[in-house]
Simulated assay, not measured.
Amino acid sequence: MQLVVARIGRAHGIKGEVTVEVRTDEPELRLGPGAVLATEPAQVGPLTIETGRVHSGRLLLRFEGVRDRTAAEALRNTLLIAEVDPEELPEDPDEFYDHQLMDLDVVLADGTEIGRITEISHLPSQDLFIVERPDGSEVMVPFVEEIVSEIDLEEQRIVITPPPGLIDESEAVIASTRDADEDGAEGGADRDGQKGDA
């Protein structure tokens, strides 16, 4: 299974390094030297990581065959995709890969059906579940511990305790798929409000 683990940003310096927007909680595993990654658009890759380092809080990567700023800049906005075993689970029990959460039923503590997860949007401040309700409308549910009280993968359901107004019919917060992450990143999510990964 393929998961987006990073997006290439600007070129850094003149020797082919690029900044990357990390989309994995395990960058040392997914983005280490020697890693071979597929890309979107596909014709750019595959790319093999030659070196990696952190500079001013940002991860910088250099890829094999990319030796100057022009070549590095040509990679800008390319998504980096890792091949992940579908059975593999994150080390932290409070973290989940997106594919584990997709299509799970969302219910209240009393069993009232809210809908099912159709998308997961990774925002800088937190992750959001896009939940399709039985009537076809959508509601955004922040993936935070205060709201998502239980995730039961065996029962294929998520129990939420939403604050007033989040899912009430009269005050529903309706989401559009256009509001979701435009890159379609299949990263992961966690309840700490941090950006998740693959």
Rank of each mutant, 00 (worst) to 15 (best):
D98C: 07
A185W: 08
I81W: 13
D127A: 09
E21K: 02
L3H: 02
E28P: 10
D135N: 12
P162A: 06
P86Y: 05
M102R: 03
S121E: 09
A74Y: 10
G188A: 01
D85G: 01
L153P: 15
V159W: 13
S121P: 02
P41N: 02
G188M: 00
D98I: 01
L37C: 00
A189N: 04
L128R: 10
L3K: 03
K15S: 15
R133Q: 15
G136Y: 12
A175K: 02
L75V: 05
S170R: 10
F129D: 03
T112L: 10
Q156Y: 12
V84C: 11
V144E: 10
V22S: 03
G45R: 09
D103A: 08
A109I: 14
L75N: 00
G196T: 00
G65R: 08
A82S: 13
V18R: 14
G45A: 04
I120H: 03
G52S: 11
F63Y: 05
K195C: 08
D152Q: 15
P33D: 09
R23C: 03
L166C: 15
E138N: 01
H122I: 00
V106W: 10
L3R: 05
G187C: 00
D68T: 01
P86V: 00
G16E: 08
V159E: 15
E182V: 07
D98N: 04
H122C: 04
N77Q: 09
E182R: 06
R23W: 05
A189V: 06
E113W: 11
P142N: 12
T19I: 01
A109P: 15
R23F: 07
A11G: 10
P33V: 08
T48F: 03
R23D: 06
A74T: 02
P124R: 11
E169Y: 13
G57R: 03
E182L: 04
I158M: 14
L47E: 09
L79Y: 05
L61F: 05
E91M: 14
E64C: 06
P93H: 08
I14K: 11
T39S: 04
V4L: 11
A82F: 07
T177E: 01
K15C: 12
Q126R: 11
D25Y: 04
G45Q: 07
A42K: 02
I8K: 06
G165W: 07
F63I: 04
E28V: 09
M140V: 05
R133F: 14
E17W: 10
I117T: 00
A42C: 05
I160L: 12
E113N: 13
D190V: 06
E88R: 01
Q126V: 11
I114E: 14
A185M: 06
H55E: 09
E171T: 14
A109L: 15
V159A: 15
L123G: 02
R178K: 15
D110C: 01
R76W: 07
L123E: 10
T177M: 00
L108S: 07
P86C: 05
A42Q: 01
E146F: 07
V141F: 11
V22K: 01
I81Q: 13
